[in-house]
Design a protein around this nucleic acid. Structure first.
Length: 219
DNA sequence: CTCCGGATCCTCT
DNA sequence: GAGGATCCGGAGG
């Protein structure tokens, strides 16, 4: 067989991309157990996803999502969320942390899944070097900013394709058993008490971030 | 174990 | 100019 000069997508890549083009609320629980790898110049680190959250786009009359960064429409920062599925949306927050999403849905539909926690399954020494304050291997990626740091992701990676070099994403061979769902963390929704159950995690997994209820803002 | 505040600066209004 | 899809360390039980 011959090799085309235009780097054709593999069947695997096509399959993963098509899967991610679905509704983020359906994609999210099925992404549990998936392995995201970043091959940085310093070496590879792989994370098995154990917790994530779905964020929907603007203009969904059934489920308006004030918690989404795209709620007020496209901006320079959130532009990748309006792009094709499978790309990264990385944002910087609290003056010091980066958090990473995988974009879902067809282009124009700004939905994504926030990677909230995972288990380091490859590149443990490098992940440790990136997160020297972590107290145990379980803490290396037990939070969205921790996960992004352990993988070496920054806003420079926002908009890049998570399915091609230097990244790769492997879906679990079969949907994982033992999935829990609940309200998202740190998002006050429409007032705090009616948050959507769009956070998914592997029940009982030790790497899942410790739950903290969304801060309720008084007007 | 839980609770609480400081760090620190990008992004959008 | 305000506030954040957070993390960490310290104080107290």
């Amino acid at each position: 067989m011959t090799v085309s000069s235009s780097h054709p997508a593999s069947e695997d890549e096509d399959h993963v991309r098509e899967f991610l083009t679905g509704d983020a609320r359906e994609v999210a629980p099925l992404l549990l157990g998936a392995v995201l790898t970043h091959h940085s110049p310093d070496g590879p680190v792989s994370v098995r996803i154990t917790e994530l959250e779905a964020y929907m786009g603007p203009g969904d009359s059934l489920h308006p999502d004030p918690g989404s960064h795209t709620f007020r429409g496209p901006t320079r920062r959130n532009a990748p969320m309006f792009g094709p599925a499978g790309h990264l949306y990385v944002y910087f927050t609290y003056g010091m942390h980066s958090c990473a999403n995988i974009v879902c849905g067809p282009s124009g539909h700004a939905s994504a899944v926030l990677l909230r926690a995972g288990e380091i399954v490859d590149g443990l020494p490098l992940a440790l070097a990136r997160r020297p304050t972590s107290k145990s291997a379980k803490d290396l990626a037990s939070g969205p900013a921790r996960l992004a740091t352990a993988l070496g992701l920054t806003t420079a990676d926002s908009g890049r394709d998570a399915l091609t070099h230097p990244f790769s994403l492997e879906l679990p061979p079969a949907p994982v058993a033992g999935v829990s769902a609940g309200p998202r963390v740190g998002v006050a929704g429409d007032g705090g008490s009616h948050d959507y159950p769009w956070r998914f995690w592997l029940t009982g997994d030790p790497t899942v971030s410790r739950y903290k209820a969304a801060k309720v803002r008084s007007a």
